Amino acid sequence: MKILVTGVAGFIGFHLAQRLLAEGMQIYGIDNLNDYYDVNLKKARLAQLEPLAGFTFQFLDLSDRLGITQLFQNQTFDCVVHLAAQAGVRYSLQNPFAYADSNLSGFLNILEGCRHHQVNHLVFASSSSVYGANTKVPFATSDNVDHPISLYAATKKANELMAHAYSHLYNLPTTGLRFFTVYGPWGRPDMAYFKFVQAVANNKPIDVYNYGNMQRDFTYIDDVIEGVVRVMHKPPLADHQDTLISKAPYKLYNIGNNSPVELMAFIEVIEKALGKQAKKNLLPMQPGDVYSTYADVDDLMQDVGFKPGTPLEEGIERFVQWYRDYYGY
């Protein structure tokens, strides 16, 4: 199989490409290497991929309509895994247009490419942030998600709606994956766990929002990749019966650990892995943040026979080991 992976220099894209290349697939990866976080880390991930047989990389921005059009004209893909996006909840308050360019216009370019070139399955990244102000837990894909509390979340919900429209209109099989706080080696420096480890390792205080009264469904990267790979091989059918209204070949899944952890308990796991105490700077809730995330993964288990399950202690230990190796700590 030949797979297009967008955002291949990103955290999830990098790990997915490694996994699929190891399984003998051809990977065509694109990325614009934007500077939202350390570009050198993205380049280091690419440096791991580029020597591998079957890997091709192209520097390309999602919002480059002509470039994306030419990509689909010049290459043939069995499946597209769309992971590229302008990430980050808080950053969307400072730079909203980046989210429109990448997450809306860019996603439309991908949809058009898939539509016109008979791609068998489009798998795309959504986010647990779409649940917004929801208070019912665990979060299920059947829940109403009409109340996003950040522009980032709104763009991810828009992606789900856009994908459904294309599935309905053009019979394009699409699957959206709502990721829940993904962590692990080669992770994103803008994420809390990375910032916490970095700060504690360097004897600096950590910012703890909502005075630590938060919960997150932390999901280890290998579990996320296993979920993505299984879903890739199961395109939704036009006659599936999971809703009363839509008969489009379209499906949504949560990819989460199904086990939320209190933020203070999470910090304790990091302290134990590093063998150091954190200095905590307790702060109020930030705009766009949610109190809790908690994934219902019954559909994932039912359809592809998998649910994430890596214990937090094990996952953080692996991340800390990578951090020590990469940064020489």
Rank of each mutant, 00 (worst) to 15 (best):
5 V>M: 02
7 G>Q: 07
12 I>Q: 00
13 G>I: 02
16 L>A: 07
19 R>F: 01
25 M>A: 12
31 D>N: 06
35 D>I: 01
38 D>L: 12
41 L>N: 06
45 R>I: 01
48 Q>A: 10
51 P>H: 07
52 L>P: 01
53 A>E: 14
64 D>Q: 05
69 T>C: 02
72 F>C: 03
72 F>L: 06
88 G>N: 08
88 G>I: 07
91 Y>E: 15
92 S>G: 09
98 A>D: 14
100 A>W: 14
102 S>E: 10
102 S>R: 03
107 F>M: 10
116 H>N: 13
117 H>P: 06
118 Q>T: 09
118 Q>C: 08
123 V>G: 04
125 A>D: 08
127 S>V: 09
134 N>Y: 03
134 N>W: 02
139 F>L: 12
143 D>I: 05
145 V>M: 11
146 D>C: 13
146 D>G: 15
154 A>K: 00
154 A>H: 01
161 L>A: 14
166 Y>S: 11
166 Y>E: 06
168 H>C: 09
173 P>G: 06
183 Y>C: 06
185 P>F: 01
186 W>G: 01
187 G>Y: 03
188 R>M: 10
192 A>L: 13
197 V>N: 07
201 A>C: 12
207 D>I: 13
207 D>E: 15
210 N>R: 10
217 D>C: 06
217 D>T: 09
218 F>Q: 04
219 T>H: 09
221 I>P: 02
223 D>V: 00
225 I>H: 02
226 E>C: 11
229 V>T: 07
233 H>W: 05
233 H>S: 04
236 P>L: 11
240 H>K: 11
248 A>W: 04
248 A>C: 06
250 Y>I: 07
253 Y>S: 05
260 P>S: 09
263 L>C: 13
266 F>R: 06
270 I>P: 11
275 G>P: 12
283 L>K: 15
287 P>G: 03
295 A>D: 07
297 V>H: 09
300 L>K: 10
303 D>Y: 02
304 V>K: 09
308 P>K: 00
308 P>H: 00
311 P>R: 11
316 I>R: 05
317 E>R: 13
324 R>I: 13
325 D>L: 08
325 D>V: 08
